[in-house]
Design a protein around this nucleic acid. Sequence first.
DNA 1: GATACTAATTAGCCTAGCTAACTATCACCT
DNA 2: AGGTGATAGTTAGCTAGGCTAATTAGTATC
Lengths: 150, 150
Amino acid sequence: MPPKRARPREAELADRLHSAAIHLLRWLRREDAATGLSAPRLSALSVLVFGGGPVTLGQLAAAEQVRAPTMTRLVNGLEADGLVTRQADPGDARVTRIRATARGRALLEAGRARRVEALARPLANLSAEEQAVLARAAALIEQLAAGARR
Amino acid sequence: MPPKRARPREAELADRLHSAAIHLLRWLRREDAATGLSAPRLSALSVLVFGGGPVTLGQLAAAEQVRAPTMTRLVNGLEADGLVTRQADPGDARVTRIRATARGRALLEAGRARRVEALARPLANLSAEEQAVLARAAALIEQLAAGARR
DNA sequence: GATACTAATTAGCCTAGCTAACTATCACCT
DNA sequence: AGGTGATAGTTAGCTAGGCTAATTAGTATC
């Protein structure tokens, strides 16, 4: 048995949260095959659909933690499939704004619905109190991630 | 504004949990560049290191939701880097068991430590009660994911 | 208006995903 | 025992997704 260093309480908690998030998403990801899209395209599209308004290619690349040329080709593919459109930015002719089409939006929302349903099913078996714990946790995590992003 | 269908409480909760997990991991993933490994290799290695004992190539492929040939090449790369070894299975000569080397283990644990530390830092600013909520949530999620995997 | 900076694309290279086809081994079964 | 079929892994060959370097076009600065 390797000697384990003593760790602060927060590290222990961080480790468990981290694992839980990984296992949760690894499980839900199995629903994505039904969309017919690859993981990178699906993820980029989701930024467009759930991220609010249209976004520049560079912002999209940053959000996906990918270089600009990679995003150019990803967007090319999505555009060829009719899921996304490019449009010129008024005021700066260098940037191209990317926006999901109605079809892209519909496809993504259906996929998201499958994931959410897969998760909602077992959630229904939890007590109201347990559900409340999860709801608070989700809010806390969003707050942490938002804070750290700054 | 599109008309929103009424949704059961669990779907609402599932949606928030899902988003929180995505945002959490998207943020923590930024630490991974320091390992020098690609995301697929890192993920496969983590199954080996944290998944307990040695694992067959097929099990590893299933865990990563990837086909066998993909995993063969991924393991080839990890083996070439000295992070993993293949060993024959006693009792069935068809299967090859994959095991992380000491170097692989060390590399992965360092990477994990970076992620965990990045998460632990802001966690320290939460109250003890908030931390307890997150700990319970992590346990509940592990339970859900384990249950649904069956 | 020359110079430097910035956004996106293009070119070209490797890795990571897939299916199909192959090899080797095992399990069965009569 | 030996044939038949199933199973584990690899190989071959394709497309998609990651990168850097170089290009193109537009903005900003001075």
